[in-house]
Design a protein around this nucleic acid. Sequence first.
DNA 1: CCCAGCTGTGTCACTTGGTGTCATGTTCGG
DNA 2: CCGAACATGACACCAAGTGACACAGCTGGG
Lengths: 187, 187
Amino acid sequence: MAGLRERTRRAVQAELAAVALELFTARGFDEVTVDDIARAAGVSKRSFFRYFPAKEDAVFGAVEIMSDDIASQIAGRPTDEDPWESLRLVLREWAARIDAESQALRVIESTPVLRARLHQKREELRAQIAEALAARTGLDAFTVDLLTSAAATALDCAAREWFRTGSDRTELVDVAFTRLRPACATP
Amino acid sequence: MAGLRERTRRAVQAELAAVALELFTARGFDEVTVDDIARAAGVSKRSFFRYFPAKEDAVFGAVEIMSDDIASQIAGRPTDEDPWESLRLVLREWAARIDAESQALRVIESTPVLRARLHQKREELRAQIAEALAARTGLDAFTVDLLTSAAATALDCAAREWFRTGSDRTELVDVAFTRLRPACATP
DNA sequence: CCCAGCTGTGTCACTTGGTGTCATGTTCGG
DNA sequence: CCGAACATGACACCAAGTGACACAGCTGGG
């Protein structure tokens, strides 16, 4: 049955990802070879690439799953709510949850190519959110683009400030949203 | 003499970049091998890597040179000028100039890995600008981070809107800067 | 003038990420 | 219990880099 096979498939994938993450944190992304991961997990290099399209993808599993429902959360906000406020509420929640995934995040942050990949995935997510926001509010494409991009920027800046000062992360997100509120969000 | 050698070195590099760009636009980045470029330019694959650390770098030459002086331009703005306005003036100029480099940009836009790399380089540039802005205005690190990030976002949004609508590019940059002006830019 | 040394280049071998192919084992449905 | 999917491993292969080494050409000094 497909369902059962699907379950074991995810199990292997998770196992592989866990092994990979462990090796990456210990030695660094570039210092670990796909063969290393595969052997440590007891499979062949070829099989690794049957579960992940690329070495990089072994790191992004958890991050992606979290991203899935953000767009729907945006779509589910009350219709009369300020869009900028909707973004703030949903994304600060997300930022808090991402904190838990900090081990993967640390690996990503310390590896340029992974940082680039993360940004790419985040850009895709932003486009989804923009669409959801447009559907909910009836705003034009340019405006939702501006709003969601500004929100993503707020998260970035909060993350960097957290890195600089170590202050409370959720609070930093709030501050960043306040200080970055774009002119077009207050009509 | 170092000067002469430096000149020929740049010449070879430019030649290599030109050949590469031609092949990339004709066949696409992934469909061109380093061996192809090297052979087309009459050198060995090994020599290609003596001029560029990676295949990707053969595309970024012009973009990098343009980036060089932006930070100094920011630093050179009058001290009493609104920081957000400084950013707008310098970056709209840059956006106009980048238009000329459209062939390389087209290759970059149509290749995910190059897009990611461009973003990475732009992030480095943003950090430079942030530093220059901090030095000029005495603002704290968080604030200049917010301002420069918002400015970068404005450029992004303008570029995407240009892609959607085809309106005038410089004008779009102005509109994006106006609509995205962050709360913290107006004290 | 000639030799010593530096520099740029080509050649070759090697590592690693990633893919296609095939043969074999394993599992599931009838 | 048998045949058809399916998962896996083994192997060959390609392309991006990298390191080592040999060789040419220019350069300067004696």
